[in-house]
Simulated scan of single mutants.
Amino acid sequence: MAQDKATFQAQAVRMTTGRGFIAALDQSGGSTPKALRLYGVEESDYSGEEEMFGEIHKMRARIITAPDFTSDKVLGAILFERTMRGEIEGKPTAQLLWEDRGVVPFLKIDKGLEDEADDVQLMKPMPGLEKLLAEAVEFGIFGTKERSVIKSANAKGIADNVAQQFEVARVVTGAGLVPIIEPEVDIHSETKAEAEVLLLDAILSHLDGLAEGEDVMLKLTIPDVPNLYDPIADHPRVLRVVALSGGYSTDEACARLAQNGKMIASFSRALTEGLSKQQSDAEFNAALGDNIDKIYRASV
């Protein structure tokens, strides 16, 4: 289902003006065992990587096909590569998301983090990125997401971090996709507020360098100072600013997000909090529905 122009435009309008949040369903190799444990699947329940990814795909399929996982409250969903290549109910995942649920599909493209230097963790190299982006277009993906981390208010580290993010973003826009730039500020940083001011300035300077058509989204840690990132949300090259939960509980993440009028949620762990493989479908759907409603209300 290659992306056509009319669909892309419809999805862009939805991401810019829609009410709701983006579901982050993109746990990869390193974070999958933890996500499965929280879901009630122990490492002894599967053997090897293939079975592990099979279990996480079943979990994601259960979430995506749940009654409340629709465009009424969910704007988009970020997928892992294997999820994009997989199928749900006989359809490629991205196709089912958009055609059956009205949810805009994104793809996680980063390959993890480098070791810490200058108080940040840059993204590891992404060999074969252009090929992956071309594949994403064929699958009907709208945009991408790439994550790096900021540990402290180090001006050089933050400048390098943001520069790398925008370098990758330009490759993504060149392929006809919309990148979600995610320089996460660690919620445990002792200089979190100072780091966020440096991050704001660095992002704005790079946004001013984007040409018409190089539109991006930002995924940022909920700032200590409410509405700090409004100038980013108001920038003409930005479709939307979304928030990561960053280790906050669902309740705290939602409370913090509600203070930021121009950010919407893109939560992962907070979305799946309290879900279990052992739950009946009725129990699972009720718990997920409660999480979706809570995150939606904080986003609007």
Rank of each mutant, 00 (worst) to 15 (best):
G102C: 10
F21T: 04
G30Y: 06
P236M: 12
R19P: 01
V300D: 10
P125H: 14
E182S: 05
R269T: 10
G30N: 03
E89Q: 15
M126L: 10
Q95V: 12
N227G: 00
K5T: 13
G274S: 09
V104Y: 07
I88W: 13
A286I: 11
E138S: 09
K5I: 15
T17S: 15
D281K: 03
Q27P: 02
V120I: 15
I141E: 00
S249L: 09
L210M: 12
G102I: 08
I63C: 06
A77C: 14
Q95R: 13
G86Y: 00
E184G: 04
E81C: 05
L204C: 03
A153W: 07
R256V: 03
D100Q: 14
K277Q: 14
E42D: 13
R240G: 00
D215Y: 13
S299N: 11
D208E: 08
K108H: 02
A2F: 06
D201Q: 13
F267G: 07
T191R: 09
R101E: 04
P226F: 00
P183R: 09
P179I: 01
D118R: 07
D110A: 02
L220K: 08
E49L: 06
G289A: 06
E273I: 03
A24R: 01
L220D: 01
D290V: 07
L257A: 08
I141K: 00
I22L: 14
A2G: 14
N260L: 09
L244P: 02
M52Y: 10
A117P: 03
S280G: 06
R19C: 05
S189D: 03
G86F: 02
L210A: 04
I22T: 15
E43D: 14
P226S: 04
A253Q: 05
A2P: 14
L36K: 03
G90E: 12
G29L: 07
K131T: 13
R85G: 03
